[in-house]
Design a protein around this nucleic acid. Structure first.
Length: 225
DNA sequence: GCGACAG
DNA sequence: ATCTTGTCGC
């Protein structure tokens, strides 16, 4: 019985091209501690409806975390999910949504990894380079690297190591709940990213920027349908 | 060669 | 990511 695939088979040559593109983009990534005061932070996330992708940006004040603005963009998606190449599937639409923000954030928390990636070029770094904005990754699962489970207490942190490099931190944002993973994206450093993840966590495992982006992605998705 | 593999 | 029911705990 024939069946549909969301996308046609991916050309191996395309994978080579995109991988090479990541190596080029990686040269533009700058890791540094922000030298300014963060006043606003945005969370972003994408959801899918068949062949389409819906991306959301939620702008919050910092550190009080009040919602200032939320925008979204919806359009066909062109690539399937390929581990390591997630940015080429989601970033284009995320950038369209970003354009709709009347006020731009000081920092963007992206749903996924920053430099904790095979080529140190996760979607958070990818977006940071393209938007020329400070970004950090906030992921629910590890992509590459090894780590020891952090202690069960809220605030416990343990390093994620890969090729002898400290690429991310496993963070226990909620007591006895699975940790999340924070990493530097662009114009950011791991220490600050970790501190921001904890500073923006309230009553849930996911820090507010990511949690709210997740939430509104579902809300807008229901509207589109 | 054999697994692992963000969302 | 998405599909998909009930269930446990605050």
């Amino acid at each position: 019985m024939a069946y549909y695939q969301t996308h046609p088979p991916v050309d191996p040559e395309l994978i080579k091209t995109l991988t090479a593109r990541q190596h080029e983009l990686q040269k533009q990534v700058i890791l540094k501690k922000p030298d300014f005061t963060i006043t606003t932070i945005a969370g972003c996330d994408s959801s899918f409806i068949g062949e389409n992708i819906l991306s959301v940006f939620v702008l919050l004040s910092y550190p009080d975390l009040q919602i200032i603005e939320k925008v979204w963009h919806y359009r066909p998606v062109e690539l399937p999910y390929i581990p390591g190449l997630l940015s080429f599937r989601e970033a284009p639409n995320l950038m369209e949504a970003y354009k709709k923000l009347n006020q731009k954030p000081d920092l963007i928390m992206v749903d996924g990894h920053g430099i904790s990636h095979p080529r140190r070029m996760g979607i958070a770094s990818h977006l940071g380079v393209h938007l020329q904005k400070p970004t950090m990754g906030l992921a629910k699962e590890v992509l590459v690297g090894k780590f020891e489970m952090p202690g069960p207490e809220q605030g416990a942190v343990s390093p994620v190591m890969h090729r002898n490099e400290h690429i991310a931190n496993a963070i226990r944002t909620k007591e006895k709940v699975k940790p999340v993973f924070a990493s530097a994206g662009h114009l950011m450093d791991l220490e600050t990213a970790t501190q921001i993840a904890l500073a923006t966590t309230r009553k849930h495992k996911l820090p507010e920027p990511t949690r709210l982006a997740d939430h509104y992605a579902a809300v807008f998705k229901a509207e589109v349908r």
